[in-house]
Computed example of a mutant assay.
Amino acid sequence: MYVCMCFAVCDRQIRSCIGRGARTVEEVGEATEAGTGCGGCQDHIDTLLTASLAPSELSELPATA
């Protein structure tokens, strides 16, 4: 799915960029140009960053039998 229509950047490209070490919307923009046009996709990029970088809430739950 396209995240950035200005530069035709899809979610897979952004996730790959995050996997290679991007930690901010600006870093994603530098690597992919996403978010550097009109800026309308920056919130979506931020959401992808948060989802990729935040620890899973499930991993913090106690294990039960």
Rank of each mutant, 00 (worst) to 15 (best):
S16Q: 15
A31Y: 11
R23L: 11
L48A: 05
Y2M: 02
M5K: 06
E57S: 04
A63Q: 13
S59Y: 14
A34G: 02
D43A: 08
V3E: 06
D11T: 05
L48Y: 14
V25N: 02
G39T: 09
I45W: 09
E30Q: 08
G39Y: 07
E27C: 01
G35N: 05
A54H: 13
T47M: 09
Q42T: 15
I14V: 09
R23V: 07
S52I: 07
V3I: 15
R15C: 07
I14S: 01
T64H: 07
D46H: 05
T36I: 01
T32L: 12
C17H: 13
S52D: 09
S16T: 13
D11R: 10
E27T: 05
T50N: 05
A8V: 01
M1K: 04
V9M: 03
E60Y: 15
L49D: 06
R20Y: 15
A63P: 00
E30I: 07
T50S: 09
I14M: 02
E33M: 07
Q42D: 01
I45S: 00
F7E: 05
V9N: 02
A8R: 13
T36D: 00
T50V: 05
R15T: 11
E27L: 01
S16V: 05
S52K: 04
C6E: 06
R12L: 10
Q42P: 00
C41R: 03
Y2H: 03
P62W: 15
L49A: 06
T32D: 05
A8Y: 13
M5I: 01
I18M: 10
T47F: 11
S52W: 12
T32E: 06
C17Y: 14
F7T: 10
R20H: 14
S52F: 11
M5Y: 12
V3D: 04
S56V: 05
Q13G: 00
M5T: 01
A22W: 14
V3N: 03
C41L: 03
R12I: 12
F7P: 00
R23D: 05
A31G: 04
I45Y: 07
Y2T: 00
C10H: 11
V9C: 01
D43F: 10
C4K: 01
V3L: 03
F7K: 01
E26D: 13
G39R: 04
Q13K: 10
R20K: 14
V3R: 04
Q13H: 09
E33D: 08
